[in-house]
Design a protein around this nucleic acid. Structure first.
Lengths: 153, 153
DNA sequence: CACTATAATGATATTGATTCTCACAATACA
DNA sequence: TGTATTGTGAGAATCAATATCATTATAGTG
């Protein structure tokens, strides 16, 4: 169980549409394609990966602009792989809180849902450590590094 | 207490020298400067920051090469900031295991040492989650995000 | 100490991901 | 239908990072 479809993938479009509407941002065909592709993905994806996978060949420049617009609107979250390449995924309020399994061999990143029990434990430590470091904690990001099944084979 | 000098900063040079020697890599003046600068820093730093701080103006191209050499030799660890810019810090065997406090306002990243007790807790959860996700865990990386004291003021 | 092989440096050119520009197309709404 | 506004596509520009290459420094050796 390395991935889990969020409970809301069904009305993903509807939720994104509403969010964009309140910001006066249009939910165009290209933007829909990107959101759906990321909804299907099991982890954060780069612009290049999305560009290769999206069928009606969206030009890279438009894709980058779309990703930026969606990120600015709070629909997508942006992170980076081990080489500084930008990765995009659905924002937490769409995808649900989760962390990442990172393969140190192939670099692949996959979502992992931590159970409530474990998440409570993590949050407790994070809050304590952040407070001790004079940080007003707003969130945390955990990457679990190792060798994935495919790379072990 | 947001930072803590590792127990080995005194003989940092000696430890790095030995490590490089076994790899047939010279510990030159420029490389010493970079290692010491990172030994003084309280967190990971970008090439640009180091370039600005290093006194005998080392050219950027040389600095990048130095950073790459030291990272390849296992002396430095490489990560990335919120914009994909590479950050460098002393490797774990030199600096000691730690995590990062990230200010979401100014982007500054500072080291934070988690106590043994908390670290054991984190490791336990990480191993359990990694195993459940079919990952042979080799390490973990935790960024605690929030607003730093300076930005709150 | 001088000599040679090897490794490191500095200046510059190049790459690659990402962003910007601008003319054109699509959409919303009066 | 007309008009203002927003989005798109193609290509140029940017910027961090890397590669190239001639020059310089260093470690060993005789």
């Amino acid at each position: 169980m390395t991935t889990m479809p969020g409970p809301v993938l069904g009305d993903l479009d509807a939720r994104v549409a509403q969010r964009l509407a309140t910001g006066g941002v249009r939910y165009t065909k290209g933007r829909r394609l990107v959101v759906r592709a990321l909804g299907r993905a099991g982890g954060p994806r780069s612009a290049a990966e999305l560009h290769g996978r999206l069928r009606p060949g969206i030009p890279l420049s438009s894709l980058y602009r779309t990703l930026t617009v969606l990120a600015d609107a709070g629909v997508l979250a942006r992170s980076h792989d081990g080489h500084g390449v930008a990765l995009f995924e659905l924002a937490e309020w769409l995808r649900g809180h989760h962390h990442h399994l990172v393969c140190v061999e192939c670099g692949r990143v996959e979502d992992v849902d931590v159970g409530d029990e474990h998440e409570r434990t993590l949050t407790g430590v994070v809050l304590a450590v952040g407070a001790a470091g004079d940080l007003e904690v707003t969130g945390h990001r955990i990457d679990i590094e190792g060798v994935c099944g495919a790379c072990r084979a």
